[in-house]
Amino acid sequence: MAQVDFQGKTFDVDEDGFILDYNQFCEEWIQYVKEQEGIDELTDEHKLVVKVLQEYYEKNGIAPMVRVLSKLTKFKLKHIYELFPSGPGKGACKMAGLPKPTGCV
């Protein structure tokens, strides 16, 4: 387990830079991930994706499937990659503080 200090906050993260405890999520975490994930400017669209992911996770205990995320945000997958170059899993879920995607990746 590693720790990241950023703008006065401390986060426990794994090797891939995913937050270990969803409760540690805060605005500073978004700023930290933004730099990690090749995002130049944080827009309302980024924030919408993060909000949708978090609401879905809090309600269902899992991250939504890609096409559910597309439906909920009304963003095509292509646009999600424009927002998050690493994609919805490594990029958006990390920024939203969700647990690391698992399975055959």
């Binding site: 891939d16 990659y81 994609g87 919805p88 490594k90 990390k94 990746v105």
Partner: peptide, 14 residues
């Protein structure tokens, strides 16, 4: 080997 691992290159999801 530890469980999983999420790394990649920008623009791709795999």
């Amino acid at each position: 080997w530890k469980h999983g691992g999420i790394v990649g290159v920008f623009g791709y999801g795999g």
